[in-house]
C-alpha cells in the first residue's frame, strides 16, 4: 500500500492505496467524484481530463501515487457558489454537447487551453488543434469549438 495526500478541489485528501490505483479511480471510487469520466481508458478520448497543478492531464494515465502532494481540480471544483464557471455556461449557451459524456473532459481541457493562450488569440484553428486529445462522438465538434471560443472570451472579460 502507498500513502498519498492530494488536494482535490481545494480539500486535502489522504488515503492508503494499492499503488496500482489510477488517479481517475481514486477520484471516482474513493472520493465519489464521478463527474470525471472513464471513456476509452487508453489515453485517447480525454473524458477523464482533470487539472494537475493547473494543467490538463488524463487521469486514466496517471497513478494516484504520482500526484502525491499536488493539487487536482475536477469538473466538480470549477463552479463557485452555485454559479457555473464561464466555460460551463458557454457550453450550455452554445449547446456544446449532446449526450454529455465527453463534456467534463472537454470543459477541463477548454479552461486549460484558455489560460495557456493568455497572450495569443484563441482562433478556431488553434481550438481545434488543442482539442486533439478530446474525442466527442455526437456533436461533430462545431458547437464545442463555438462554446470554447465564447467561454475563453468570457474568462478573459471576467
Amino acid at each position: 500500500m502507498t500513502k498519498v495526500s492530494i488536494t482535490v478541489n481545494g480539500t486535502a485528501q489522504a488515503a492508503d492505496l494499492d499503488p496500482r490505483t489510477l488517479l481517475v479511480d481514486f477520484l471516482r471510487d474513493h472520493l465519489r467524484l464521478t463527474g470525471t469520466h472513464v471513456g476509452c481508458d487508453t489515453s485517447q478520448c480525454g473524458a477523464c481530463t482533470v487539472h494537475l497543478d493547473g494543467r490538463a492531464v488524463k487521469a486514466c494515465t496517471l497513478l494516484a501515487a504520482q500526484v502525491d502532494g499536488k493539487a487536482v481540480t475536477t469538473i466538480e471544483g470549477i463552479a463557485k457558489d452555485g454559479v457555473l464557471h464561464p466555460m460551463q455556461a458557454a457550453f450550455r449557451e452554445h449547446h456544446g454537447l449532446q449526450c454529455g459524456f465527453c463534456t467534463p473532459g472537454m470543459v477541463m481541457t477548454a479552461i486549460a487551453m484558455a489560460k495557456d493562450s493568455a497572450g495569443e488569440p484563441l482562433t478556431e484553428a488553434k481550438i481545434r488543434e488543442e482539442l486533439e486529445g478530446n474525442l466527442c462522438r455526437c456533436t461533430g465538434y462545431q458547437n464545442i469549438v463555438r462554446a470554447i471560443a465564447a467561454g475563453a472570451a468570457a474568462m478573459k472579460a471576467g
Binding site: 480525454g46 494543467r55 490538463a56 488524463k58 486549460a112 487551453m113 486533439e132 486529445g133
Partner: peptide, 9 residues
C-alpha cells in the same frame, strides 16, 4: 508530440 494532456506529462 501526442496531444496537450500527454505533453503535460
Amino acid at each position: 508530440i501526442g496531444d496537450p494532456q500527454v505533453r503535460n506529462c
